[in-house]
Amino acid sequence: MKTPYPHYDVLAKWASPSFDDTTRAVLTQRLVAIPTRRFFTEAEWTLLEAIVARVLPQADRAEPIPITPWIDDALARGRSEGFRHDNMPTMPVAWRRGLAAIDAEARRLHGKDFIALDDAARDAVLTAIEHDEVDAALWQGLPAQRFFIDILVKTAAGVYYAHPAAWSEIGFGGPASPRGYVRLGADARDAWEAKEER
């Protein structure tokens, strides 16, 4: 995927006044301490890896941004956003039920497990779920579209765009304490911001 900021790396500012010790400590954890599996079963983990590879495809990256480990970590630690819809089970139940249902939809639509499908068929399964074109019986009362968009895609996007590699690709200034910014106008850029290649 082509980024408008091919020469920008937010982490090049690591030792600059745009980073402080608190932020460096937080990002070191994120970059180095990738959690191991604690919540999902091995099969669920593998399935989620396959789904996430379509939700945020990273074929262009030598080192993909890890997503599944952080979803597992949040569930293992009982972390949630702080609310759930009254037609939604608790997060741990929703994730287990949702992953099983996606696999069941793959078998219903294509006669194979999700991980046995090629990319086009995987996308077709997820697109059907996005459109709520599902066999409700497979979802045990879980709202399919809401699970896919508001939980799975939202969570995965939240993990991906919390990673410095994603900040670099979209030209985000990244950490900015204590230095902040000086030039605030349109087409104005501080020397420590990403330069766009037009």
């Binding site: 995927m1 082509k2 980024t3 408008p4 379509r54 939700v55 945020l56 495809p57 996308d123 997820l126 996005e130 968009i149 508001d150 895609v153 939202k154 995965a156 996007a157 939240g158 991906y160 765009y161 919390a162 994603a166 900040w167 690709e169 979209i170 030209g171 985000f172 990403a194 766009e196």
Partner: peptide, 27 residues
């Protein structure tokens, strides 16, 4: 970026390459 990606994804049902493409317009 994180909040913006989540808004783009949930408001427009964007995922896959479409989401990453949209996010390139962030600035």
């Amino acid at each position: 970026p994180r909040a913006w990606a989540q808004n783009v994804a949930t408001a427009r049902y964007l995922w896959g390459d479409a989401l990453r493409h949209e996010m390139m317009k962030y600035n």
